[in-house]
């Protein structure tokens, strides 16, 4: 009887085979296929020339993830300490920007960061450039903010910060309050409670937050194109060019996508193992 009801899953299992597993198999096949057909490893050996892009992507994504964690964790923690009404409103405010498509929001950053953009106009209106120029004898007219690595990182942090806040918040909010009381009764000060109880228990939320920020950051292509100009090519841009752009070569594109996928999966597996160890330590 019980097994019969599991048949409800059959349509979805079929769907997954067709649209989740088969496409990934396609990527693997393409990655090992030469442009003219036939098995080859050439796509991978050609990738050496893109090592710069690989390191840049992982570097920028790591920075963005670290900043998201540094901002997102305190925010999630503070929200969970507020009253229930304020908590609800705050979480709504965290989710709400996602309803305006991320491209639009990133585009809006362009007008803020441009050389003649709103921030530079604001700085010049309050006389910051005049001040700096007279103090340091420089000839500044604007801060070059757009088309830099910093702008790309800002775009990543801006777009993916909610993905860090949400999982951390949901873990902290579900935490058993009596644990905190017990820790306090046993003599821990508020920093001790945080370090010995809250932080270890919230680690699963941190891990899923880190994943949810790092993966889209390392693979983004629109953010780098809008805020990084043409100087800061990322892995995502590289893949996009191979499929829909000027350098049409889906075989190379698949190989790059495959390598990126494998690196990400390995990173996540390592991190999860590390995380599990921590959890067990807490339980002991």
């Amino acid at each position: 009887m019980k097994n019969k009801r599991s048949l409800f899953a059959v349509p979805y299992v079929g769907w997954m085979a067709l649209f989740v597993v088969a496409p990934i198999v396609m990527v693997v096949i393409y990655a090992f296929t030469a442009a003219g057909g036939g098995l080859t490893l050439e796509n991978f050996s050609r990738m050496g020339s893109y090592a710069v892009v690989f390191t840049r992507s992982f570097h920028l994504a790591l920075i963005a993830t670290a900043i998201c964690l540094l901002i997102g964790y305190p925010v999630a923690y503070m929200i969970s300490r507020e009253g229930p009404g304020l908590q609800r409103v705050a979480m709504m405010l965290v989710m709400l920007p996602m309803w305006m498509n991320f491209l639009l929001r990133t585009y809006s950053w362009m007008s803020i960061l441009e050389n003649t953009g709103l921030l530079n106009r604001f700085f010049s209106a309050i006389g910051l450039f005049k001040l700096l120029n007279t103090v340091f004898g420089t000839d500044l007219e604007y801060f070059a903010m757009i088309n830099t690595k910093g702008a790309v990182v800002l775009g990543m942090v801006y777009n993916y910060l909610p993905f860090m806040i949400l999982p951390i918040y949901s873990v902290i909010a579900k935490m058993d309050g009596s644990l905190l009381e017990a820790a306090r009764d046993l003599g821990a000060n508020s920093f001790g409670v945080f370090r010995k109880v809250i932080l270890p228990l919230s680690l699963p939320g941190v891990l899923s937050g880190v994943t949810m920020v790092f993966v889209p950051s390392v693979s983004t292509f629109a953010i780098s194109k809008l805020l990084g100009g043409s100087n800061e090519l990322l892995l995502g841009d590289l893949i996009e060019q191979q499929f829909l752009g000027t350098a049409y070569n889906p075989y190379l594109g698949s190989a790059i996508a495959l390598v990126m996928m494998v690196i990400v999966v390995v990173c996540m597996a390592l991190m999860n193992r590390f995380g599990e160890g921590e959890e067990q330590a807490v339980m002991l």
């Binding site: 496409p23 990934i24 990527v27 693979s219 893949i239 499929f243 996508a257 990126m260």
Partner: peptide, 18 residues
């Protein structure tokens, strides 16, 4: 959980190939 953890671009590209 593959479509959730995979990068969007990989999901998009792989479906495109399919």
């Amino acid at each position: 959980s593959i479509p959730m953890t995979n990068a969007d671009i990989v999901t998009g590209v792989s479906l495109c190939l399919l």
